[in-house]
Amino acid sequence: MPKPLIVDIPHDLGQAEAKRRLSEGTEQVRALLMKSGIAVDQLAWTGDRLDFGVSAVAQKVAGTIDVGQESVRLEVRLPFLLALFAEKIQKVASKEGTLLLTKK
């Protein structure tokens, strides 16, 4: 099994604001994924950790998002087929996460 894809995104929002933004952002992402035919199997907060799981075309992806005081850590376990695109997925996740966590 491939190693997990990990993205650390620094922020200066504080833990509560970062979590609030991520909570709102995940609902928007959920709606977009469903329109694209991707099922959201799991989306559950436990404290400052979001556990998620999605599936499409017989591929399942699971991961976590840990919200810290100064950074957010995304860890995703990709199946072998999707692991081939890990670098591209990592770039997109980093870019979108940074946009979501940039002070406004």
Rank of each mutant, 00 (worst) to 15 (best):
L43D: 11
L13F: 03
G53I: 05
Q42L: 06
Q28W: 07
D51C: 06
V7S: 07
T102V: 09
A39W: 05
Q28T: 14
P2D: 11
L99N: 11
M1A: 15
S36D: 13
Q59Y: 07
L33K: 12
L5I: 07
W45I: 04
R30C: 07
L32H: 14
G47K: 00
I9E: 03
V67D: 01
L81P: 06
T98D: 05
V40E: 00
A44E: 10
L5R: 02
V57K: 14
S94T: 06
A56K: 09
E27Y: 07
S71T: 04
S71Y: 02
A93H: 03
V57A: 09
L101Q: 00
P4G: 00
S71L: 06
E96W: 05
K3Q: 14
L22R: 00
E27A: 14
S36L: 15
A18F: 03
T64C: 04
D41H: 13
I6G: 00
M1W: 01
L33R: 11
V54R: 02
T102K: 13
V92A: 09
I89M: 08
L32K: 14
I9D: 00
W45C: 03
M34V: 09
P79T: 00
L13Y: 01
G63H: 02
Q15T: 14
K104F: 06
T26G: 02
L32D: 12
A56Y: 10
L78K: 02
D66N: 13
G53V: 04
G14C: 11
L82N: 04
D51V: 00
L78E: 02
T46H: 08
V54I: 13
G63L: 00
F80C: 06
P4N: 03
L81M: 11
